[in-house]
Every structure is written in structure tokens, then in C-alpha cells.
Amino acid sequence: MTQEALIVLDRVNKRFGDHHVLRDVDLTVSKGEVVVIIGPSGAGKSTLCRAINRLETIDAGTITVDGTPLPAEGKALARLRAEVGMVFQSFNLFAHKTVLDNVVLGQVHVLKRPKDAAERKARELLDRVGIGGQAAKYPAQLSGGQQQRVAIARALAMDPKVILFDEPTSALDPEMVNEVLEVMTALARDGMTMVVVTHEMGFARRAADRVVFMADGEIVEQDTPDGFFTAPGSERAQSFLAKILTH
């Protein structure tokens, strides 16, 4: 793995009213690295993930993506977002567009690819995530697992520098979790830079280069999956792991 920094968060702070959701968060994600963020609910994991493409604004600190500070708004921000893929907990596929059009839309309207090239790429990606046969259907006709795989294909179609996953399996029925995790694991293996907020500890162990543990808006500790899961350093991480791993 190269050590070139792709995303750098420096003393990032955010408040929702009295609630201090992000406290002095420093985080660096290198090119090709898979960073999994875990922690109890309300720890600020999703807010952190959404702040990286400015779906959530921050109050203080800086976020830099590939050397460029996150623009405040306008065309520059749109350009940056096109380079940062995002996969949501609730899929958010465009409900009035077919599966194929969902994957084509960004390529044509943002990257200005010709329609036929965009369709070819979309079909390749849909095949890659195992739903090539569903291209003509609408999102509501697909299962949750299939929808989330389309969402991953939609993000991949933009050739992003990094993909952010905001609890991608939390809204899925248990039997559909694995089909999504398998696609994500394959992506990680292929060298995609990924920031993944998840409760799937198995995925963290298997696919992560680094596990970041957050609680109360702070990064409490970070380590390799092996290091973190076998010997967590902080008391909060120990109690968190004790709670989820004893069942």
C-alpha cells in the first residue's frame, strides 16, 4: 500500500445545538486504504462520513481531499463530490429511474460521457455486482440487497477516488447483508480506497486495513483489525466489544 494521503481531516469539530457531535477529529486515509469506522450509536460516525463530501457541514477544522480543501459550495464542490462516491444506509436509488439509468445518469450529466459508452460501463458494473439481469427494472422492484449493490455500481460508475459507505448494511434484512459485504470485500481487494461506517465486525476483521473506534464524537483509538479486536487499548473500546461480541 502506498502511503500517499488522500483524505485528511484536521481538528474537525461539529455541533448540533448543544450536542458536540465531532470533537477535534484528526484522520488521514491513504490511497488504497480501507478504513472501517465503528463505535456505539451517536458516536458521530455517520456525521464524520457525511462531512467528507460535505453533505454535513463542519463548524471548525479542515477537510482535504487529494490535496484540495473541501470547497464550500458551487461548481467546485460538485466537482469534488463527483470524485467521492457515496453509498447510503437507505440506498437512495433514484426511484423514478430504471436500474440502468441510475448508473448512467451521473456519467452522462456530470462526467459528460457519451450515452452509449455510459451504458456499456453501467452494464459492466451491474454484471460485476451480480445484477446485470435487473437493468431494466425500477428500484422498488428489487430487494434491499440488490438495491444496495446497484447503489455501489452507481458510485463506481463515476470512477471515484474514494467511496464512503454510511452503514451500508444497516437497513438490510439479515439474509441480504452478505451479498453486499461480498461486493465490498471484492472492492477492497481490488485496491479501492474506502471509508466504511458499519456494525459488521466480521467485515472489519476481514477487509479493513485499519479500524477506527469512535465514541462521543471523538476518535478513541485506531489500530489494525487484529490489534484492535484482540487487544483494544481503551476501556470504552473494551466495553463496546464486550457488549457486541458476547452474543
Binding site: 463530501n53 453533505l55 458551487g74 461548481k75 460538485a78 466537482r79 469534488l80 463530490r81 463527483a82 470524485e83 467521492v84 462516491g85 457515496m86 447510503f88 437507505s90 440506498f91 437512495n92 436509488l93 433514484f94 426511484a95 445518469l105 451521473g106 450529466h109 456530470v110 447503489a151 452507481r154 463515476m158
Partner: peptide
């Protein structure tokens, strides 16, 4: 229209008008 639809559009790099 669920707010996630616009968030997904913006995260692809679409501007306000598009």
C-alpha cells in the same frame, strides 16, 4: 420526495439546477 434522493444526486456531483 425523500431527502435522500437529493443527497444521492448531490453526492454524484449534480448541481442545484440539475
Amino acid at each position: 420526495v425523500p431527502v435522500g434522493q437529493a443527497e444521492a444526486a448531490r453526492s454524484l456531483g449534480l448541481g442545484f439546477v440539475k
